[in-house]
Nucleic acid binder design. Sequence first.
DNA 1: ACATTTAGTGCATGCGCATTCAATATTCAT
DNA 2: ATGAATATTGAATGCGCATGCACTAAATGT
Lengths: 345, 345
Amino acid sequence: MPRKSITSYDVAKAAGVSQSAVSRAFSPGASISKPTREHILKVAGEMGYQPNAIARSMSTARKDIHQKSGMVGVIVTRLEDPFFAQTIAEFSRGIQAQGWQMLLFTVDTEAEVDTALNTLMQYKIDGAIVLSAILSDQMARACNTQGIPVMLYNRSAEGLNASSVEIDNHEGGRMAADILLEAGHTRIAFVGGEEGDATSTRRQTGFEERLAEAGRQIFRHETGDYTFDSGREAALRLFARKDRPDAVFCASDVMALGVLHAARNELGLRIPEDFSLVGFDDIPSAGWAGHALTTIRQPVRRMIKDAVDNLVESMESPALPPRIRRFEGRLIIRNTVRQVGSSSP
Amino acid sequence: MPRKSITSYDVAKAAGVSQSAVSRAFSPGASISKPTREHILKVAGEMGYQPNAIARSMSTARKDIHQKSGMVGVIVTRLEDPFFAQTIAEFSRGIQAQGWQMLLFTVDTEAEVDTALNTLMQYKIDGAIVLSAILSDQMARACNTQGIPVMLYNRSAEGLNASSVEIDNHEGGRMAADILLEAGHTRIAFVGGEEGDATSTRRQTGFEERLAEAGRQIFRHETGDYTFDSGREAALRLFARKDRPDAVFCASDVMALGVLHAARNELGLRIPEDFSLVGFDDIPSAGWAGHALTTIRQPVRRMIKDAVDNLVESMESPALPPRIRRFEGRLIIRNTVRQVGSSSP
DNA sequence: ACATTTAGTGCATGCGCATTCAATATTCAT
DNA sequence: ATGAATATTGAATGCGCATGCACTAAATGT
C-alpha cells in the first residue's frame, strides 16, 4: 500500500520552520544559517526525506531558461558489443562522477535515433550523447533550439552544430595498411561494415589510400555487420576460393576475432603463417593470449573523458560553441601479422 | 540561445482551445472528440510541441498515489563484463518495449547499491532492477513504503519483500560436477568469486555437494573476481605447483576463458587433454570455435523477459506480492571436457 | 415535445519545489 | 550606542500538466 511520500512541507512542520527553509537546507550555497540547516537536515534524516528531483526540475523551469533535470540522455546501438559495453560503462561512470544521471535508450537502427532523442527530450534531458550514429539536421536544430547540447561519439558532427569525439578513422586505416605492406603482403582483403557505414568507409578510405601509395589495391572486399558471426562468415567466404588473400584487415576487432576463430578452428589455417590479420579498436579480448590480435587502439578512456567533460561544459554554459575532436589511434603490434623477412606463404 | 520550450498553453492558444483540451488530446482514452483531438494534434505537430514528461509526472502525483515518472531505475556493476552487457542490452529493449525509460546507475561495489537506489528514488522511478547485488533490509523496506517494486536479477530476494529472477546456481554447480565426475576426473579445482559472493558460493555448494556424493571434494580452490585476468592468474597459480588439477570449474565463463587462454597460450597446456574446463553462463564468446567452452547456460532471454514482465506488472498493480523465480540452467557440452573413456593424464 | 442521460469542453486547482520579495534579526562601524 | 549594512527567514508565486468539477451541447428515451 503505497503511501504519499514525505515532502518538504512535512519536514518543515516537523522542524518548526517554513518550507522555504527546508528547500534552502538542501540547496548548497543557499542563504540559510548553519544551525538552522543542521537542524533541518537532522529532522529530514530522521524522517527519511529526500528532495524530489522531478519537482525540483519543475521549479527550475523559469523564464526562458531551459529546465534542468540533471539527466543526460544516451542513445546506443548494439550494447552487447564489447566495444560499446566498455564505452557505456565509461560514460556511465563519467556522467555520474559529474553529478548527472544517465537515461539510456537502445536503438536497433540508425533511423530510430531521431525518435529516441525526441522521446528523451520529453524527459527534459540536459544533454545528449549519441553513440555511433548521426542525427538529422532537423533534429540537431531542434536540440539547438531547446538549448540541449549534443555529443556525437564515434562519429563526426561536421556541419551539424553539435560536438563530436571520434578516432581518426582515416589515419587508422592507413596504419593498418602500413603494417601489412611492411610485412610484404600483396593480396590484402578488407572486411568492412555495411554499405554506407561512415566509420567503416573512413577506415577503408585511409586503408586504400595507403595501399595506393604502394601501388596496390584491396584484393577482396567483404561486408559484415560488426558482429563476430559476420567476421566468421566473411572468413569462410574469403578462404573458400582458390585465390586466397595473404592478409585481412577488419574494420573492427570483433569481426577480426570472428575471422581468427573461423580461420584457425574451422579452416585449419595458421595466423600469421598463412595470413596476417589486423583489427580495429583494441577491445579487451583482442589482447587475450590466444588471440594476440594486432590492431589499432582507440584511447577510449581519454576520448570518453573528453566527451563527458565537453558535454558537461556545454550543459553548464549553453552559449559554448560545439567542438569537434579527433583522436589518434595507435598501432598495437601483437602476433597476428607476420614478421618482416619471413617467407611469403 | 536557449528559448523557452513550447507548452500546452501555447498549443491551446494556437488551436483556439483550452489547455485542458491539449492535455486530453495527448492522453489516450481521455474525454475528447475526435475532430478536436485531430486538430490539436495537427497544430501541435506543426509547432513541434511534445508533452513535458517531467511536468506530467508532477501532476500525476495525487492523493496517496505514488507519482509516476515512466522511468525504471537499473543498478549495475561491471557493465564492461560481457555477461552484464548482454543483460543490460536485453533489459533496455524489454523496458522500452513496454513504454518505460531506463535510468541507469553504475556502481563499483555492492555497498553502493543503497546509495544508488536512494539517488534513483529521488527521480521517482516507478520501479527498480538491481543486477547481481542485494539491498539492505532497510532499503527494501523504504522502497516498499514508497510503493516502488524492486526486481533483483541474478540474486535471490528471499526474506526481502522484493521479487527476484535468478538461475539455479546450486543445481548448476551440480551439473558441472556431474560432467567432470563422469569424465573420470579426480583432482578437480574450483575458481570462484570473492569470499562471500552469493552467486559463487551457491555454485560452489552445489558443486561440492555433487562431488561429495561421489566421495570426492574440491582439490584446490582459487579466488577470482569474475574478470578475465583473475581467471588467468588463477590458472597460473593452479599449474605452478607440482600437483596439478586435472579439471577446473570456474564460476563464470569470463574467468574460464582466462584459464583457457593462460593454459593454452602461456603454459602450453592442452584442453581437454591435460585438463578439463567448465564455465558458467554461456556468454557468446564461450561458443567461439577456438574456445568451444563447455559450460552451464543461463536462459538469459527468458529470464529477462520474465523479470521485465513481472516488474511491469508490479508497477501497474502495486498490490501484487513479490515473486521469486528460479530458472534451470542447461549443460552445454562443447570441447573443453575430455570424453569418457579417454585415458587419464 | 420534453425529460434525462451522455459526450465534450473550459475553469480552477494542485503536484513539490526553488526563488523573489518583503520583513525581521543580527552584525558592524564609528 | 546607533544607524547602516548584512544575514536569515517566511509568505507567496509559478514551473507544465492532469484532472475534478460545473456547465453546455448533443443524443436518447418516452
